[in-house]
């Protein structure tokens, strides 16, 4: 038996919608599991990815922590895939890009009603925000992109099937979506 392909997934500034869509491949996950083992992913709850063949990244880069995770992922994964609108162009979180992040923080923590301590939280546990939410290809080299919000389950299926068969992944026409 050939060694199984190790796949890891993660979500940065995303909503886990892409992960949910992945699971929509439904019963096809069973034959997939014959060929694939999951490293870090919501299925395994591992905190750090080990060396992997394929890394699927959902979500854009909105803060320091996202960048840290993304870089680690890039190091561990032979093939890195940007999954979904947010990873590919920032998506919904990037709607904040037209505002100054300092103004946003001050607005939220100073002006919104119901806050007694008018300070921007400065806990080392809280990662600092980037000025803009960025797609992941602006921070690391990305090998493939699976567009869609979320990408349809068929896109995941077609993409992974191609990859596992050693073909250059090509999405069937209907599987390329931007929304």
């Amino acid at each position: 038996m050939t060694a199984k392909v190790r796949v890891a997934t993660t979500s940065l500034a995303g909503c886990f919608g892409c992960h949910m869509s992945f699971l929509d491949i439904d019963e096809r996950i069973l034959p997939l599991l014959d060929k694939v083992t999951f490293d870090r992913s919501p299925l395994t709850d591992l905190k750090h990815a080990g060396p992997c063949d394929v890394g699927l990244v959902e979500g854009g880069v909105c803060n320091e922590d996202n960048l840290h995770v993304l870089r680690e992922f890039r190091k561990q994964c032979k093939v890195l895939v940007a999954v979904g609108a947010c990873a590919i162009n920032g998506g919904l979180p990037a709607q904040r890009n037209q505002f100054d992040v300092g103004d946003l923080l001050r607005h939220v923590y100073f002006e919104e009603p119901g806050l007694t301590r008018r300070v921007v939280p400065d806990d080392p546990e809280l990662p600092a925000l980037f000025d803009k939410v960025r797609p992941i290809h602006e921070l690391v080299k990305v090998d493939y992109f699976l567009p869609g919000c979320p990408p349809p389950a068929d896109a995941f299926w077609a993409f992974l099937s191609d990859l596992l068969e050693g073909r250059d992944p090509r999405l069937p026409p209907g599987a390329i979506r931007y929304d």
Partner: peptide
């Protein structure tokens, strides 16, 4: 959008400008 899909464009490729356009 339709042309992008027709041409099988899967990502923006280049870095985003993110211009501010009210």
């Amino acid at each position: 959008q339709s042309l992008g899909k027709d041409l099988a464009v899967t990502s923006a490729g280049f870095a985003h400008e993110s211009p501010t356009r009210p």
